[in-house]
């Protein structure tokens, strides 16, 4: 199981995956908005998305778990 965490504080701009989805390494899982930038959050490895723990528009903290892979 791998937890994908927010690298910096910001808000969730777009969620681009869903539970059950197969992802490859470097696939875009969601996009954060912070400091005027659209910051893609990519998958650290290939796997299956187990959980998406945030919704679009939600404010997230640095280190907060966004997506769980299995």
């Amino acid at each position: 199981m791998t937890e994908v965490k927010a690298e910096l504080v910001g808000s969730v701009w777009k969620v681009k995956t869903q539970p059950g989805a197969q992802v490859a390494e470097e696939d875009e899982l969601l996009v954060l908005e912070s400091m005027k930038m659209e910051i893609p959050v990519t998958s650290p490895r290939a796997g299956t998305v187990k959980e998406v723990r945030v919704k679009e528009g939600e404010v997230v903290k640095e280190g907060q778990v966004l997506v769980v892979l299995e």
Partner: peptide, 10 residues
């Protein structure tokens, strides 16, 4: 590096 944290300085 915009690819990482949007290139913000920390």
């Amino acid at each position: 590096q915009p690819l990482q944290k949007g290139g913000v300085l920390d």
